[in-house]
């Protein structure tokens, strides 16, 4: 009887209030325990009441000036929206999908940038190598003093050899693993990827510089006739680690390219689009770096034979290549 006297908006509210309360209750339950824990009927009711609430909100905005009602409906609809459209994936499924499909697909899609990354590194190595042969003083320019373990043009060949084949039991195991992971190359990889955003140049320069020091290092050993031994020492983890840096560089370049050449899109949109693959490249690079650190921390001290070092290093490299080339072909995603 009383309802007749109410104005339209108050009547509107009185008729629907029970439904809103029900939705409120469902939303609270979904937020507290997750949608997975809800029964079929409840989940269905949640979605249906949410859509009713959006309609109510749209109508209320037209017919009501009751701020309390508008605020409540807006907040309720927003909460319901957030729980209805919550991500429904499981962590395990995501990791599996990344490994079997999306990561190799992303690698194949951005082959050009990865190639550019390898090119930067390769050119750096070549230039560093040739410059060292021209004048060994370049070694001090390229090589950060902390990196070479005191190795340089002044050190004796015996000393160089002793470092390559040295089983120091203290330096292996978990501690060494951690040390290596946070050593120079990981930092370089992070920088190379992150700096790519700033129009590519820092990423290219840094990768090139990294190549320079590697080239000079290589030339030092080749000059002393230790080229093959150093190759083995580097290969066991370096194939993976240096590839990781190049891939990180590729990801950074992709971001930088989106900033430099956004095409028809705005820079923000282009960056977001490029981020899809770039972030996968960064993840691949980090996985590779972790594997490299394991190889470096455990493998290099245990395996002292040159041929075995080569075999392990390049076999792991071939495995990476196989993953990138063959992974995720089966599905049409």
């Amino acid at each position: 009887m009383e309802r007749v006297d109410l104005m339209r908006s108050a009547r509107f509210r009185a008729e629907r209030e029970a439904d809103w309360r029900r939705l409120e209750e469902l939303v609270t339950r979904a937020e507290r325990r997750g949608m997975q824990a809800m029964g079929y009927a409840e989940a269905r009711d949640l979605a249906a009441s949410y859509r009713q609430a959006t309609t109510s909100l749209a109508i209320a905005r037209e017919i009501s000036l009751d701020r309390a009602l508008l605020d409540y409906l807006e907040a309720l609809t927003a909460r319901a929206y957030l729980s209805v459209y919550a991500p429904q994936e499981r962590v395990g499924g995501i990791v599996w999908r990344f490994l079997t499909a999306t990561a190799p697909q992303a690698m194949r899609r951005s082959w050009f940038f990865v190639l550019l990354g390898f090119l930067c590194m390769g050119l750096g190595v070549l230039v560093g190598y040739l410059l060292y042969l021209e004048n060994p003083a370049w070694y001090y320019v390229f090589m950060p003093p902390s990196l070479g373990d005191g190795r340089g043009p002044d050190s004796t060949t015996e000393y160089l050899r002793s470092i390559i084949y040295d089983a120091d039991p203290d330096a292996s195991g978990l501690g060494a693993f951690a040390t290596f992971l946070f050593s120079h190359n990981t930092r370089i990889a992070i920088f190379v990827f992150g700096l790519g955003v700033f129009a590519c140049a820092p990423a290219i320069l840094l990768t090139f510089y990294n190549g320079l020091s590697l080239g000079a290092f290589l030339a030092l050993h080749v000059e002393r006739g230790l080229g093959w031994d150093l190759g083995g020492w580097l290969s066991i983890h370096g194939v993976t680690e240096i590839s990781a840096i190049c891939i990180a560089c590729g990801g950074g370049l992709q971001l930088g390219a989106a900033v430099l050449f956004p095409g028809q899109r705005t820079r923000k949109d282009a960056l977001r689009l490029a981020g899809h693959d770039a972030v996968k490249l960064a993840l691949v690079a980090s996985v590779m770096l972790i594997v490299a650190a394991m190889l470096e921390g455990f493998g290099r001290q245990l395996v002292q034979d040159m041929t075995t070092r080569y075999t392990i290093g390049w076999c792991v490299g071939a495995l990476w290549l196989a993953w990138f080339a063959l992974g995720g072909r089966g599905r049409s995603a």
Binding site: A10, R13, A14, W20, A68, E74, A75, R79
Partner: peptide, 11 residues
């Protein structure tokens, strides 16, 4: 947002 329904003053 916190959904709190205050009573309708006009009602």
């Amino acid at each position: 947002p916190q959904p709190i329904l205050l009573k309708d003053l006009a009602a």
